[in-house]
């Protein structure tokens, strides 16, 4: 494929008629503009990202400047006395997402392997569709279901672990249910890319289904699977509505698994509309922290992926 520059200089086109050359030149100009427009689109995203970070930093600066390190060491978020500690919310965000990933990853991989390796053909399509439907349910529905159905059930079944039904672990479970369809859908798609010949030769060598899944399929699509998990984790970290309903919304640091707590997104959702001055600035600082956490998680996932490429081939 000739580059536009080569055509415009006309060096190699001496033998062509005037009309053909003009037409080619016009097409080349279109191509140049096409590239420029696409570049502008891509650049606009970067610009927007930069602008969001800049405005977050600018608007959270008053709180960060006033509280400094205290913002990260104080163990409660009490807006009425202007004590703002981000620790309870950071802890809640990380813990609920962690619980969600721990529950969701094995289940999602299991579903994906079942769908691609074991599932009878008749069931495959309906099951896939159902799982995709699960991904389409609005998060407020999950929140209401969590509050009205799951929390009371947890309280009845395990009253000593879930005395109120709500709490950090409950939020983690809801998040797991919410991200399972995402991780499953991605995993199923990448597992489908494993060439049939690899499976068949493994079975031909006498491998069991477990061995094929564990030794052949999973290692060969590791990259894609981690991508699916990161997608799920990203959703879990920022999920707001469903979490607000079931997390308990306690603004003290409560370093337990099942206690009442809060997350960054839930805290912002609860307080932003009635906030002003320092409180608003502090909430925006929380938003900045969530942004950085998500960023760090994505970067870490990339790093893991880079280290795992060795086994890919």
């Amino acid at each position: 494929m000739a580059t536009p520059q080569a055509i415009q200089t006309g060096g190699g086109l001496g033998g062509l008629s005037e009309a053909t050359r003009k037409r080619l030149q016009r097409k080349a100009r279109i191509d140049v503009w096409f590239e420029r427009v696409l570049f502008a689109f891509a650049f606009a995203v970067l610009l927007l990202l930069g602008a969001i970070i800049a405005s977050l930093i600018a608007s959270s600066w008053p709180a960060l400047e006033r509280y400094g390190l205290e913002f990260f060491t104080e163990n409660r978020w009490a807006a009425n006395v202007e004590v703002f500690g981000a620790l309870p919310a950071i802890y809640g965000t990380l813990l609920t997402s962690f619980i969600a990933i721990v529950i969701a990853v094995p289940i999602s991989f299991g579903i994906a392997i079942f769908l691609t390796e074991l599932c009878p053909n008749v069931l495959r399509q309906p099951l896939s569709t159902l799982i995709e439907l699960l991904a389409g349910i609005p998060s407020i529905i999950y929140g209401m279901w969590g509050m009205e159905v799951m929390a009371p059930l947890l309280r009845t079944w395990f009253p000593s672990v879930f005395p109120a039904g709500t709490g950090l672990a409950t939020a983690g479970i809801i998040l797991a249910v919410m991200i399972i369809p995402f991780i499953t859908a991605v995993s199923r798609d990448v597992i489908n890319t494993v060439p049939a010949v690899m499976r068949e030769s493994a079975y031909g060598l006498g491998c069991t289904t477990w061995e094929v899944a564990r030794r052949v399929i999973l290692p060969s699509v590791k990259r894609g699977l981690v991508g699916g998990v990161v997608l799920g984790l990203g959703r879990a970290l920022g999920e707001t509505m469903a979490v607000t309903f079931v997390i308990g919304n306690n603004l003290f640091l409560n370093p337990t698994l099942t206690g009442q707590g809060t997350s960054i997104a839930a805290l912002i959702a609860n307080q932003f509309s009635e906030s002003d001055g320092t409180q608003r600035s502090a909430l925006l600082a929380l938003g900045l922290i969530l942004f950085l956490i998500t960023f760090a998680v994505l970067a870490f996932a990339r790093y893991l992926l880079r280290n795992s490429t060795g086994r890919h081939a």
């Binding site: 409660r76 919304n249 003290f252 307080q271």
Partner: peptide, 16 residues
């Protein structure tokens, strides 16, 4: 605890 539109409650569950 003190008074205010948002306070940090030492005990219990927060609902929306």
């Amino acid at each position: 605890v003190g008074e205010g539109k948002s306070v940090a409650w030492p005990a219990g569950v927060g609902a929306k």
